[in-house]
């Protein structure tokens, strides 16, 4: 029975190869960033920012391109945890904490549970759709539009200000009270819906599914 469960070996390989590849990339990017720093284009803060950003982008690319579904889900952790750091850069501790708890702790675990309940064990390698090239072109074009508009925009120079938890709380419970309550109702409905959806209905059972 044990031999039918390949997960430990896979994890080993994942950790080893992932660790080596990531180390190589980190060293490479860090070198480039430091060179840029010493030339004078960017500051140390930016070096740190871009280091984290490149990690996020690599993770995102991996989660989109990898064939193995388990690897893809694990790769998603990189951008999701990177966002925590980005939020901290922007001075919002509460958001960073919430992001860490919900995404890192909740969503990824949920995804892994879903994987476990489907047929991933039998065939973890997925075949991608036929629109890959078209999708690539469209994604590149959208990226072009976004980047072009960012570079051509007249962005007013400003300094980010950090947001205290007290301010956030008072904003939510005064100005955004009704949306917040509606959000609570929405979550309630989503919870109920997920429950109902996941429950086995007798009349909807397919004939060959065993009880």
């Amino acid at each position: 029975m044990l031999s039918k469960v390949p997960l430990p070996q896979q994890f080993d390989r994942l950790i080893v190869t992932g660790g080596i590849v990531t180390s190589v990339f980190v060293i490479l990017i860090l070198t480039i960033l430091l060179i840029l720093k010493f030339v004078g284009f960017i500051s140390y803060t930016e070096v740190f920012f871009w280091l984290i950003s490149s990690g996020m982008i690599i993770g995102a690319l991996a989660s989109v391109f990898l064939k193995n579904i388990v690897h893809a889900v694990f790769s998603l952790l990189a951008p999701l945890l990177g966002i925590v750091a980005i939020y901290l850069f922007l001075g919002s501790e509460f958001l960073a904490l919430a992001q860490l708890l919900i995404y890192g702790g909740g969503v990824v675990i949920l995804l892994l549970f879903a994987l476990m309940m489907t047929d991933v064990q039998d065939n973890p390698v997925v075949i991608d759709g036929s629109q890959k090239p078209v999708g690539f072109i469209i994604a590149v074009l959208i990226g072009f539009v976004l980047l072009y508009s960012i570079f051509t925009a007249d962005i007013e120079i400003a300094t980010p200000s950090s947001l205290s938890l007290a301010d956030l709380g008072s904003n939510i419970f005064t100005q955004f009270l009704i949306p917040f309550l509606l959000l609570g109702i929405l979550l309630d409905i989503a919870l109920t819906g997920a429950l109902l959806n996941g429950k086995k209905h007798k009349n909807l059972q397919s004939s060959d599914s065993d009880e």
Partner: peptide
């Protein structure tokens, strides 16, 4: 101090990658 553009560029790149994923994946 990190300028605003950096965040925007990062978010654009992530968005495009996600977009590509939605279009190309079957699972």
């Amino acid at each position: 101090m990190i300028p605003l553009e950096n965040f925007l560029i990062l978010s654009s790149i992530l968005f495009c990658i996600g977009f590509y994923g939605v279009l190309s994946r079957k699972n």
